[in-house]
């Protein structure tokens, strides 16, 4: 009986090993599933997907460094791409489909799959007035009713805090801390209490997650603050160690194709290509806070934990 079980496991393993392009992707899982299915349907090339958080993807890459398995990596933090590029891990590829991707969403070795924006995720049933800007959440109406993701765990929140530091807006964060806002782990951990009504709003919610929840019928609204926000492009990279460079390139082409970008738009991410429309505000519609002049990552995180601990 035991040998039968082992044989079954090995058979499963063999099935997994035959695929051609191996993709490590940060969430959302539905998107990468659709993209790889569409890619296989179009090109006949099989795919293998490992999907987890950006952190888990990076941890697996690091542990596998001696014998890399992945061909394509999609993360939710642009900083991972700049670091990999510095370490010389990336294969430079300029996809023909990236022509309409703006320059700030590509670099040698990486191109954005799509872009997420940061919002206030507000529960209209919470009995609080609708906030319109970040500073509103420091008002007494929201006392003890705000969560925010930990910038150490959420790349998006980090970018927002970075922008606040760069633009001298840390008083907003001070006000939040004084108003009893709690730091609640990663993005999902911050959103769930808002959905149930334990909290009224997420400061620095992720737009596509919030919109996705609203589309499922949850009572929650994504509000783009009037003073501006930041975006988090999701880099897509081909590792230099790949043995399937052609297939990997084909996959990048597919994600940047009209069909692929439509899938990106379907999960409420902003498409990287400016010529693709989506049923949500696009990058061009947003007021963006610059992050130039911000100190190093450790300094930003230290400022933040100084305020909240």
């Amino acid at each position: 009986m035991k040998t039968g079980f082992l044989a079954a496991l090995l058979a499963l393993a063999a099935g997994a090993a035959q695929a051609d392009v191996t993709i490590y992707s940060a969430g959302p899982g539905g998107l990468i599933k659709d993209l790889s299915a569409g890619f296989t349907a179009k090109t006949g090339i099989q795919t293998n997907v490992f999907q987890a958080t950006t952190g888990k993807v990076m941890a697996r890459l690091e542990a596998e460094a001696a014998n890399p398995v992945a061909d394509v990596v999609i993360s939710a933090a642009w900083g991972t791409a700049t670091q990999f590029a510095e370490e010389g891990l990336l294969l430079d590829y300029d996809s023909p489909n990236a022509a309409t991707v703006p320059d700030y969403l590509k670099m040698p070795g990486a191109v954005a799959q799509g872009v997420a924006g940061l919002v206030i995720a507000w529960n209209p049933a919470s009995g609080t007035p609708r906030p319109s800007d970040w500073a509103d959440l420091a008002k007494p109406e929201y006392k003890d009713l705000v969560t925010l993701p930990d910038p150490a765990a959420s790349g998006g929140t980090f970018t927002l805090v970075e922008a606040f530091v760069a633009n001298g807006m840390t008083d907003v964060l001070e006000g939040l801390a004084a108003n009893g806002a709690i730091v609640a782990g990663a993005n999902k951990a911050a959103l769930n209490p808002v959905l149930q009504g334990a909290k009224a709003a997420v400061f620095a919610g992720v737009d596509y997650i919030t919109m996705g929840a609203a589309a499922k019928g949850e009572t929650v609204e994504a509000i783009f603050p009037t003073s501006g926000t930041v975006v988090a492009p999701r880099p897509m990279m081909i590792l230099k160690s790949t043995e399937n460079a052609d297939d990997a390139k084909a996959f990048v082409d597919y994600v940047l194709s009209e069909e692929g970008q439509a899938m990106v738009a379907k999960v409420f991410l902003m498409p990287s290509r400016t010529d693709i429309t989506a049923d949500r505000p696009l990058i061009g519609d947003l007021k963006l806070l610059p992050t130039e002049g911000a100190p190093a990552r450790e300094a930003v995180l230290a400022t933040f934990s100084g305020l909240f601990n």
Partner: peptide
Amino acid sequence: RVSEWPIDL
């Protein structure tokens, strides 16, 4: 340290 980028194995 393992799950938040940058990774510190």
